[in-house]
Design a protein around this nucleic acid. Structure first.
Lengths: 112, 112
DNA sequence: TCGCTATAGGTAGCAATCCTACATATAGGA
DNA sequence: TCCTATATGTAGGATTGCTACCTATAGCGA
């Protein structure tokens, strides 16, 4: 998976990973990796700053805890985050449709 | 259309616009706009540097001409460019599938 | 003639984003 | 004791698309 491909689409993925309940950063990273057959395996230097950004923007809310002697920061979606996730899904649909139209080679070949 | 969404996907679009024959930069910009219902309306400050990048990379080849008193730089795909376009389509397919899987909300709702 | 728009090309510098590389710390197995 | 997995974090770099600006011609309307 080319690195630049993800640019601008990461926030939605992180929000989606938090949709089914609060998670800490490392778990989000693993959830995304497992959901995509390992194709999206984000480095921690991507995940943590991105989560900080989302928290800064008020889309998620974090809280510290200690589990098994390790400190954890658990994040959960805010109402704003839920709306943002819905928007991200809409935007993705539109973007994917437009890209497929402009890139050509059939609208939705889905050869995999 | 969110601006950052395009990042990393522009090159493929430009190559696709040149697939059916040589075009000059301004025509590429218009072709992309028309093919997407105006949803991808690139500023010239995006198109020209991107074409320069593609030429630098050997994916397209440009040549000057004068039409109607205006100088034009006409670009055409190289063999390398054709291969790159095919690769871009494959990558897009994979990326779209992975994104849809991770973003959730159904695999291909295509509500538009 | 003057001004505006469309066509056609271009650059400089900014902002955003993701990555690499590194640092810290605990738990547990070899 | 060392290594790996878990868990979080930062600094700095590279890439990329955009904003804002510049130059120039053709053609139309006032």
């Amino acid at each position: 998976m080319r690195a630049e491909a993800l640019k601008g689409h990461l926030d939605g993925l992180l929000l989606a990973a938090l949709e089914d309940g609060p998670q800490h950063g490392y778990a989000v990273k693993e959830a995304l990796r497992d959901a995509t057959d390992g194709k999206i395996d984000l480095p921690t230097g991507t995940v943590y700053p991105a989560l900080h950004r989302l928290e800064q923007a008020g889309l998620i809310k974090g809280s510290w805890s200690v589990v098994g002697g390790r400190r954890r920061r658990t994040y959960e979606l805010t109402e704003k985050g839920r709306r943002s996730l819905a928007g991200a899904r809409d935007h993705w649909q539109e973007f994917a449709a437009v890209m497929s139209a402009a890139l050509g080679g059939g609208p939705w070949p889905v050869t995999n």
